[in-house]
Simulated assay, not measured.
Amino acid sequence: MNAAVLVKDGSEATITGGTVTSEADGANGIFCYGGNGGQNGAEGDGTTVTIRDTVIKTTGDGSGGIMTTGGGTTYAYDLDVTTGGRSSAAIRTDRGGGTVVVDGGTYTTSGLGSPAIYSTADITVSNAVLTSNLSEGVCIEGLNSITLNDCDLTADNTKQNGNATFLDTIMIYQSMSGDADSGTSHFTMTGGSLTSKSGHVFHVTNTNAVITLENVEISNEDSDNILLSVCDDGWDGAENEATVNASAQALSGAVLVGSNSTLTLNLTNDSSFEGYVDGKITNANGETVSTEAGTVSVTLDSTSTWTLTGDSYVTEFNGDAANVVSNGYTLYVNGTALTGTK
């Protein structure tokens, strides 16, 4: 373990103000290690870091801003964190997980494979500005979670890293490396803004993911306008499964579900979806991943609508067909055109 500040062995550390700088590879700014030996799901030894009003800057590879592993607990308030190296998430976790609670501050990365947040833990961030200038905005691996409340997240993922064959802003996956237990991944975002400058807004592969969105301002600046892809990528060993729960949420763009993949899309509480569902998928390398849609279930409550921007293919539709605006296109349910649409 290497860091500018390392806290372990059941210690409780409080840091207020000041500047923490790290220039070496593998040297996190603040490292909270909970002592569980990297055993995912195991309790830590009580190691806790509370840090506020501090500037943290790292420039080496493998050097996160605030790092939590081994079941540690980190509370961070109003930090200014920047990282420049490869594999250097501003809010970083690794094997053994832990709990991270962040309120306020700015978190900026510019390295390859360096999202603003990388989660193999349970992470909650509120009222923060999160920016990734080269990589995904956030990554969740396996049985872990990220919750964002009133945050502004921007990502410009223009270069692939490792096994990845897609570019995306929210990546939810399982690498099978042992860094995270397999299970359901959770991404929850309430309020704030999500700006995706390159690639797909959401990408789910090799895991089961639940994405919950409420009143988020989503801006997709990529010309392909792909909201979500659920499909094969550079990892295997598990299914590609996603559930998207949208409440009081406007969604737009293509939803792509691979032929061996599954999506459940639930729109409630005056939500709207302007887009289409299909299974024709090409990755960032120009390779064909899928040619037809997999298993897709869409549910609209009585207050929510779907406006088609292309012919769409689902296996199940629940709701009033009158809440589907055909816009000159056709919604096929198990190969049969849905009637009664507007």
Rank of each mutant, 00 (worst) to 15 (best):
V324P: 03
I170V: 15
V210N: 12
G10Q: 07
A254Y: 02
T307D: 03
N225K: 14
T295D: 13
K57G: 00
A293P: 09
V20P: 10
N157R: 02
S272F: 02
V333M: 03
L300F: 06
A155D: 06
T93H: 05
S145M: 10
L228E: 01
V230L: 11
D270F: 13
S185N: 03
D150G: 00
T264E: 11
V244N: 02
I172Q: 04
G96K: 09
T288D: 03
G111T: 11
A246C: 12
S11D: 06
N149C: 01
T303K: 05
G199A: 05
L79M: 07
I140R: 06
I56R: 07
E214D: 12
S110L: 04
E23R: 13
A89E: 13
V100P: 03
V257Y: 07
E217A: 10
T303R: 01
I172R: 07
L300G: 05
G192S: 07
A238K: 15
A246K: 08
F317R: 06
L148M: 15
D233N: 14
D311Q: 09
V298P: 03
K57R: 14
I51E: 01
T295Q: 10
K197I: 05
N269D: 15
V5R: 12
T54W: 05
N240S: 14
G234W: 14
S252W: 03
A321C: 04
G29S: 09
I226V: 15
T16F: 01
N318K: 13
I146S: 04
A293Q: 12
G38I: 09
A76R: 06
N149K: 15
G199H: 07
V125Q: 04
V100M: 15
S326K: 14
D122N: 15
S11M: 08
G70W: 03
